[in-house]
Amino acid sequence: MFSRYGNAETLLDGYISTGRFCMFLKEFENLCTEERAWDVWKHKINGKSFAEFYSQIKKDEKPEANAEEINSEDVKSTVCQSLDILSGFNPYEEVS
């Protein structure tokens, strides 16, 4: 992000203060995805236009999970596993 924007902190503060931070992140992610696809197409893909290649990539992406698709049992299981992992963690213990 810093290679694209000279002072990203000011930019991010502006988006946060106007309540558009999530919109900015989605647009930034889309821009980066398109740039990576352009680099791959430019160096590796022959016989397809960029539009064809990019539309194929977008079609092959998996849709994000909806809240309805995540059931409470999965959440409980994940929380229990996380608590088990953290139960033996002591931040004040010295590492040898």
Rank of each mutant, 00 (worst) to 15 (best):
Y54E: 02
E27T: 03
F53C: 00
I45D: 06
L31A: 14
G19M: 09
G14Y: 13
L25W: 05
A65V: 12
D39F: 12
F24Y: 14
F28Y: 02
Y54K: 03
V75Q: 04
Y5S: 08
E27M: 05
S96Q: 10
E94S: 12
Y54L: 09
E61P: 00
L83E: 14
E34M: 11
K26S: 04
D74M: 11
L25A: 10
S96C: 12
P91W: 07
M23G: 04
A37Q: 02
E64G: 04
C80N: 07
E34Y: 01
S96T: 10
H43Q: 11
S17Y: 01
L11R: 09
C32N: 11
K44F: 06
N90F: 05
L12F: 13
Y15G: 02
S72H: 04
G14D: 07
E73H: 03
K44T: 07
A67R: 03
F89H: 03
Y92I: 02
C80G: 01
R4L: 08
E35K: 11
M1N: 02
E9P: 00
Q81G: 05
Y92F: 14
C22Q: 11
W38L: 13
S96M: 06
C80P: 00
Y15P: 00
T10S: 05
E35S: 07
F28L: 09
L86V: 10
R20D: 10
S17F: 01
E29F: 10
D74L: 10
Y15M: 07
C22V: 05
E35D: 13
D74T: 04
N7Q: 09
L11A: 02
S82R: 03
E64L: 13
D60G: 12
L12D: 01
F89Q: 08
I16E: 14
E27K: 04
K59I: 04
E93G: 06
N46R: 11
G6R: 04
C22H: 10
E69M: 11
R20A: 13
F28H: 05
S49N: 06
D39Y: 07
E35C: 07
E35L: 09
Q81Y: 05
R20G: 01
Q81D: 14
L86E: 05
E73D: 12
V75L: 15
P91E: 04
S72E: 12
R20V: 02
L25F: 06
R36P: 00
F2H: 10
Y15F: 15
N30P: 00
Y5M: 08
Q81F: 02
T10A: 08
D74A: 06
E27H: 04
P63K: 12
T10V: 10
K76A: 15
K62Y: 05
R4S: 13
E64Q: 07
N7L: 03
T78P: 00
E94W: 05
C80H: 09
S49Y: 06
E9H: 08
Y15C: 01
R20F: 06
I85Q: 03
K48E: 15
I57N: 00
A51N: 09
P91V: 07
S82Y: 07
D84F: 11
S3R: 11
S96D: 09
S17E: 13
E69W: 03
K59Q: 14
S72G: 01
K58L: 15
K48I: 00
T10I: 08
A65F: 08
F24K: 02
I57P: 00
V75K: 10
G47E: 11
W41H: 15
G47Q: 07
D84V: 02
G14L: 07
I85E: 01
S17D: 13
